[in-house]
Design a protein around this nucleic acid. Structure first.
Lengths: 194, 194
DNA sequence: CTTGACGTAGACTGGTCTGTCTACCTATTA
DNA sequence: TAATAGGTAGACAGACCAGTCTACGTCAAG
């Protein structure tokens, strides 16, 4: 158990994120987070004004975790892609999704789930989710840059649709191969770009 | 206000569905549904054993509504599609999504949202969501049958990814043009099918 | 050594949740 | 007319919720 102020905060956020992902945001009570993390209630409210602030902090953590993990997988698996090497980055991205989806404890996209539970568009939680999706879109645009497509933004948006669709399909419908299906679709889409 | 037993049940389900979609499932209490519908608590528990049963009933209603609405739009808008007429049905499907997304009170896919709030895969609510997605997949397969693709199941799954991605992107990221973006991607995907 | 910042432990408030129950009303049917 | 089914109204139980507060402990800096 960490003793510094910062590490307690981090521990709280980590625990909260884990429980939010596993059981949902509204279904996870403050007391559950406290019990699991072994932190006092006062300490929580010393770091966060409200549960909503803790939710936001957990989403920020998840955003950082996701982006760094996916970048790591992309770096690791780009070399092993077949076909046009300019497309290898995007394809590796889908392999990253596949690893995540088939991995332990996958429970759908935290941000899609959060925006389902906080549906009001002006809710800070919902806004945080929209921001995350924007960052992923940016990442995809970077991955597509070498292809020098006539409309790279549109291409990135379409690939993002496939990615979100794969995550949702894996979670809601239980399709564990969704990311590979999306990878193939992305390849076909980009190979035949007009 | 209906007076028969059946109509009271229907009214309860309609009201519940509306509130669940607008505010979320866990965030919507039984009392809110009762207040909005003007029905007594005893009546609700006369028709449903628990809130979860009401949730399931609402999802069934939504399943029927969605499928009948989308079929209506497909019938209406298939004739106006450009290009290969064998593809017109699928393209009209995306126009249907676009109408829904840009319409009043769009709050994402009820089933994606529900499976976010009931994440356990064996939860009856989650199972109902998976079933709905299966039916949509079937519908897409029907729409693709004229194209006589070598792997119609895979094609339907890939188109379904675009559809789910569009719904999620519209809701979470607020992209109101997502369905049209997906429509274009679907066209490119299917035109260049190998 | 004292002070102050930060921690723990947990009682407590006021509210909400689901679900049960009593008491009464109404309409149809035997 | 009497019985029955199904409705309304709403009190109530028991659990859980977020958030506040008190009392006490610990440790590092002045």
């Amino acid at each position: 158990m960490g003793t510094t102020t910062a590490s307690r905060r981090d521990h709280l956020v980590d625990t909260a994120l884990k429980l939010f992902c596993k059981n949902g945001f509204r279904a996870t009570g403050i007391d559950t987070v406290l019990g699991e993390s072994g932190v006092a209630k006062k300490t929580l409210y010393n770091h966060f004004k409200s549960k909503d602030e803790l939710v936001i902090a957990a989403l920020q953590k998840r955003d950082e975790d996701f982006l760094s993990t996916i970048r790591e997988v992309i770096a690791r698996r780009t070399p092993e892609q077949e076909g046009d090497p300019r497309m290898a980055g995007v394809l590796a991205f889908f392999d990253g999704l596949h690893e995540w989806i088939t991995g332990e404890g996958f429970n759908g996209c935290t941000f899609i789930n959060a925006s389902a539970e906080y549906p009001r568009r002006d809710d800070p939680v919902h806004v945080a989710c929209a921001n995350h999706k924007k960052l992923v879109l940016q990442l995809l645009q970077e991955l597509l840059v070498d292809l020098k497509l006539p409309d790279p933004q549109l291409a990135a948006r379409q690939v993002a649709l496939l990615a979100d669709g794969a995550i949702v399909s894996a979670h809601t419908a239980g399709d564990r191969q969704a990311a590979l299906c999306a990878k193939q679709a992305a390849r076909q889409l980009l190979e035949n770009w007009t």
